[in-house]
């Protein structure tokens, strides 16, 4: 029969067993020889090297290697008969350039939609900042907005896409007693419902990311500066313009620069809603098009023959967007407001 002594004995044995492992691993608590400085340094070097080697190798392969490969591919074409690549100079880049200006079978409509997406993104930026400011100022209902706007950061976006799709396609027609209404219809160039709906959906989800970042930036504003504003009798909007905006302007700059850099590659939530866009041709943006060109459509994998066009597109867009992005960054840093 188990009694207290027996249990205590068991605990004692367990403790000794743990102690035994500890002694084996670390040599017990007896005083050790002090390690020399050089051996500590050597161990640190080994540790840091091992720690860094994996990300460095990864960077070398998936960034440097991949981009070199992409740049080379931009100057190659694919021989459909021999199933092999060959160098063709600027042929593929020229093809993409020509395609950019053709409607329908070309990419002109895709470029227009990318432009609209970019403008909406830019227009939403001040609104994002202002809503974050309202939450930061703890206005009535701020807590509620915080939860609602933070939700998309907590729940995976694909879950929101599924919920959104179901609500938009089955809920809304039920509520408005309009069974034929399809707010995600991506086939009709007149209504463009699918494109508009997903843009608005993206704006809402964009609040989540913006809220986290802008609130983080605002929490770094010195209390003294805010206090100074109060002493100067600044009202709510003056405080926003003269204190908050200058204080978080580096963050705004980053967001703007990222928006410019992503002009050609951003595909928002269109892939999540429409897959390769085969059934929603009026929603495809440039980023969406080039992504699906390589990734395929889920049923048909992207083929090697599509790689040169995708690489040439990437190369061409980089040439256009890289200087523009740097210029925007330079101008915003030079002429934007500062805390001084």
């Amino acid at each position: 029969m188990k009694n207290k002594d027996y249990e205590q004995g068991l605990m004692r044995r367990f403790k000794w067993w743990i102690y035994g492992i500890k002694v084996k691993l670390f040599g017990g608590d007896k005083p050790k020889k002090k390690k020399s400085l050089s051996s500590v340094k050597k161990n640190e070097t080994i540790f840091l090297t091992l720690f860094l080697v994996f990300p460095l190798v990864q960077f070398a392969i998936f960034y440097i290697g991949k981009n070199i490969n992409s740049i080379l591919l931009a100057f190659q074409s694919y021989d459909v008969n021999k199933s092999e690549f060959y160098f063709s100079g600027l042929t593929e880049i020229g093809k993409v350039w020509d395609k950019l200006w053709i409607e329908g079978t070309g990419l002109l409509d895709e470029m227009r939609r990318s432009g609209i997406q970019f403008l909406v993104q830019l227009l939403m930026l001040p609104l994002n900042v202002f809503v974050a400011y309202c939450v930061w100022k703890n206005l009535p209902g701020a807590g509620f907005f915080k939860v609602i706007l933070f939700l998309p950061s907590v729940v995976p976006s694909i879950v929101f896409v599924l919920l959104g799709r179901y609500f938009l396609q089955y809920g809304i027609p039920e509520i408005f007693n309009s069974p034929g209404l399809d707010l995600l219809d991506g086939r009709n160039p007149e209504t463009m419902y699918g494109f508009k709906t997903v843009l608005i959906f993206g704006c809402w989800l964009g609040f989540a990311g913006g809220m986290v970042v802008y609130l983080g930036a605002m929490s770094g504003i010195s209390e003294d500066v805010v206090e100074y504003g109060r002493l100067e009798n600044m009202n709510f909007f003056q405080e926003f313009i003269h204190i908050v905006i200058p204080a978080i302007f580096p963050t705004i700059t980053t967001y703007t620069v990222v928006a410019f850099a992503g002009f050609f590659t951003n595909y928002g939530y269109f892939f999540s809603f429409f897959g390769d866009g085969g059934s929603a041709p009026c929603t495809i943006t440039l980023g969406h098009y080039f992504f699906c060109l390589v990734a395929g459509n889920g049923e048909t994998p992207g083929g090697e023959s599509a790689y040169p066009e995708a690489a040439a597109g990437g190369f061409l867009f980089t040439i256009v967007v890289a200087p523009l992005t740097l210029l925007v960054k330079f101008l915003m840093e030079k002429y934007g407001p500062s805390e001084e």
């Binding site: 329908g104 219809d185 086939r187 009709n188 085969g278 059934s279 041709p281 009026c282």
Partner: peptide, 13 residues
């Protein structure tokens, strides 16, 4: 100006 990949989609759009 719209590229359709299904005949049904074409007659819808």
């Amino acid at each position: 100006g719209v590229n359709y990949k299904e005949a049904i989609d074409l007659f819808k759009g």
